[in-house]
Design a protein around this nucleic acid. Structure first.
Length: 774
DNA sequence: TTAGGCTTCG
């Protein structure tokens, strides 16, 4: 039989190829050379749907990658399979399979220039006397491994529903619960991990090791682990896993599409295609079968009386007494409640004094107890931590307290995250921006303050006093102009420009988030920013269209598709845009999603550079309705103008993908997709007074006035607080007019006429909030 | 040996 599936033979995993065949290297596949008695071996990286040619012959095309030459510029080749063999192959071939072909005919590939693969393709059919051997992955039960040569030992992995008492096994699982390593009462560190796998059986493992590093590096529920040599025992009527001699583990991020970088302390480990495929399959299974936890809690979002996990940086620590220890941490956001400060002796507090002072309003005190003290003491200042199951407690009328109680219930504990952790990378970038803002604030304050003799209230007061003398805004141009009184302006004709000195008596809207609008610079229209519900509805209605199978896996993107296993059986497809035939790092990757929910789309934006929601049509993917963002990047939703856009087919994007270094700039993406992008803008009305008169001036600001990008305000707590603080400085609530600070501004007057009336309006321009106010 | 998940009570 020409297509041979190498079947499992109990205890014998080796089925040799016919001995007359010799392996041919990709670079030796050339026209004019003799390929009789040669075979080519590669991994299936792509297969196309089975089709019929014009004459009714079945036709199946697969792309093989040569693993021995995978770092060469050209490492893949097209295999064209005809007739019955095409049918047979189409039934069994899976992505990732090892594929061997012999007795092929070699011909020039007409698509080589376009697909960048080998200059020749291999033609294969029964008539030509070809043979195909397929080695399937572990998870295809009917197919099995054979060795081409003796390389690494083969591991067999036991599904969690097949575990037997008293055995030592290898297994994979998705972390459903874990206790980060803690000091046990014996001699070792202990970590308890509960796993689940697609057999839907749970296994709780108790892992011990004297070396912290030898325990699995699990950072969150949903991580995927591979355990080697774990002992299975029955305990209380259930199977339990426990470390045995030689136990080893790999841990992977459980997010679909995240890089496959194993976390391990082992210097030598096997991790091959099959393993990769298993992890990818488990990720997809988990994505549709396990509940995905929401975004991580931030200090700005804490509530009294709850338990939460906090990702943070350690800025100070101090011993308190024998059974408790103090950690001072921050995550760049401000806790909305006044927080409890644990009294400690100044000499017991470790940490940079200046930093502790600078961040005094952003750090919180976490008191850790009992078994956590030892680990807490050993933590390095500046390290990034995830503290699991912190308890917030409202002790007095105002203060909120943070406790990490003794014991390890619910995974209570402290984990140190490496700098390479994606959450740490994100946090670090955020903290740097906050620290910069904080230090700029500090520079403007008096040096007396820095020594810590002044308290917060005094800081604020002196800050406001300063604001009352100087202007809280500055002019970015035309400084030579002299001031004009408001009365004069009100009595003059428009259009004109003026420099004014006035006080901000009031402003609208009072709720600052309402000031954010979307503006089209082409048609000048302003539009409200759609809320998340609209977006969700659009996504839901587009999810009714199932992904078109013919639009999966093209020359410029790779696709993953799965069906959710809830009652809706929703089909989700993700298309990862490639660059140079390769997938890029997630942080550089643009992906398109069909059938995703709002939550899934947001989750993807956390990991990938750009996300474009799309749906299938008959012959291409297309953008959703323009009330939906055409692009999500970071926290920002980019919208297009309905009036001025003429959406083009999605394949127009492939031109950017083909660039040397695709930067995926929103403006460039908008341009190739025929979208006129809308810009986020603050629109506010300031009522200004100067003793001679009052006038309303509009502020129309993308970023310049507040030095805050309008695009980021809606999704960034810190910037919202910053903007609120700025407005409180410009127009302090509950103050008499005399006590308000001065603003220096440029305003221009302009006429607005319609059939019935004529009005003069004023707009602020070339003005910015003073640096020490921001 | 240790812990064997399922919140402290400071």
């Amino acid at each position: 039989m020409p297509v041979q599936l190498l079947k499992i033979i109990e205890g014998r995993s080796e089925t040799p190829l016919p001995s007359h065949l010799q392996k041919e290297d990709l670079k030796h596949l050339q026209e004019g050379l003799d390929h009789t008695n040669k075979y080519f071996k590669g991994t299936v990286i792509l297969s196309y749907p089975l089709t019929k040619l014009g004459d009714g012959t079945d036709f199946f095309k697969v792309v093989l990658q040569d693993l021995d030459n995978w770092c060469s510029r050209i490492n893949s080749i097209n295999i064209l399979i005809y007739g019955k063999m095409a049918q047979d192959c189409a039934k069994v071939i899976r992505h990732g399979d090892m594929f061997v072909v012999a007795g092929f005919k070699l011909a020039r590939s007409p698509t080589a220039r376009e697909d960048g693969r080998h200059g020749c393709h291999l033609e294969v059919s029964e008539e030509a006397g070809s043979s195909i051997y397929v080695r399937g992955s572990k998870h295809v039960q009917s197919l099995n491994p054979f060795k081409f040569s003796s390389v690494a030992p083969k591991y067999v992995y036991t599904p969690l529903n097949r575990l037997k008492d008293g055995t030592i096994v290898n297994l994979y699982g998705i972390v459903k619960f874990f206790k980060p390593p803690y000091v046990s009462k014996g001699t070792d560190y202990c970590s308890v991990v509960t796993l689940v796998d697609p057999s839907n059986v749970k296994l709780t493992c108790t892992l011990f090791n004297g070396n912290l590093d030898s325990l699995p590096k699990i950072y969150k529920v949903g991580d995927i682990v591979r355990f080697h040599r774990i002992k299975i025992r029955e305990y209380n009527g259930q199977m339990q896993g426990i470390t045995s001699a030689g136990f080893a583990s790999l841990t992977f991020d459980g997010t679909v599409g995240a890089p496959l970088v194993p976390r391990t302390s082992s210097k030598v480990y096997t991790f091959m295609d099959e393993e990769q495929k298993t992890i990818e399959e488990l990720r997809v299974w988990a994505a549709s079968n396990l509940s995905i936890s929401g975004p991580a809690a931030k200090l700005s979002g804490v509530q009294p009386m709850l338990f939460f996990d906090l990702t943070c940086q350690l800025v100070g620590k101090a011993k308190v007494d024998g059974s408790s220890f103090l950690l001072k941490v921050w995550d760049g956001t401000k806790c909305p409640y006044p927080t409890w400060k644990v009294p400690v002796e100044a000499r017991d507090l470790e940490g940079e004094k200046v930093l502790l002072h600078q961040l005094r309003n952003l750090t919180v005190d976490i008191l850790v107890y009992d078994n956590h003290v030892q680990l807490a003491k050993s933590l390095k200042l500046g390290s990034f931590l995830r503290i699991y199951s912190i308890h917030t407690k409202q002790a007095s009328a105002d203060d909120i307290e943070f406790h990490l109680h003794g014991g390890t219930c619910y995974g209570r504990g402290i984990g140190v995250l490496p700098d390479s952790n994606p959450d740490v990378k994100e946090l670090k970038a955020f903290l740097e921006s906050v620290a910069l803002a904080e230090s700029q604030n500090m520079e403007s304050m008096s040096s007396v303050e820095l020594d810590g003799t002044f308290n917060n209230v005094t800081d604020l007061e002196s800050h406001l006093q300063r604001c009352q003398q100087l202007s809280v805004t500055v002019l970015t141009d035309h400084q030579d102009l002299s001031n004009t009184e408001l009365k004069t302006i009100l009595n003059s004709t428009a259009p004109q420009q003026y420099r004014i000195r006035a006080k901000l008596r009031s402003y609208k809207p009072q709720k600052l988030y309402q000031s954010v609008k979307l503006h089209c610079s082409k048609c000048n229209n302003l539009r409200e920013v759609p809320d998340g519900d609209d977006f969700d509805l659009n996504l839901q209605s587009s999810a009714c269209t199932a992904p078109n199978l013919e639009l999966q896996n093209t020359s410029w993107y790779d696709s993953v598709m799965w069906t959710t296993q809830d009652h809706k059986e929703r089909k989700i497809a993700i298309h990862f845009v490639k660059h140079d035939e390769m997938l890029q790092q997630p942080e550089d990757t643009l992906l398109m999603i069909e059938g995703g929910t709002l939550k899934e789309v947001w989750k993807l934006t956390k990991r990938f550079k750009c996300v474009i929601p799309v749906r299938s049509t008959e012959d291409d993917l297309e953008l959703l309705d323009l009330s939906t963002p055409f692009l999500l990047q970071g926290n920002i939703k980019y919208y297009g103008c309905k009036q001025c856009s003429t959406p083009k087919p999605i394949k127009s994007l492939s031109s950017i993908a083909a660039e040397q270094r695709p930067s995926w700039e929103p403006t460039e993406i908008a341009q190739v997709l025929g979208i006129e992008p809308l810009q986020y803008v603050f629109v506010m009305r300031f009522t200004l007074v100067d003793g001679t008169g009052a006038l309303n001036a509009y502020l129309f600001d993308y970023e310049k006035f507040f030095q805050i990008p309008a695009s980021e305000i809606l999704t960034n707590n810190f910037l919202q607080q910053k903007m609120q603080m700025t407005m409180n400085t410009l127009c302090p609530p509950e103050r008499k007019l005399d006590d308000l600070p001065w603003l220096e501004c440029f305003i221009k007057s302009y006429n607005v006429r319609d059939a019935v009336k004529h009005q003069v309006y004023y707009q602020i321009f070339d003005t910015t909030v003073a640096e020490d106010v921001v």
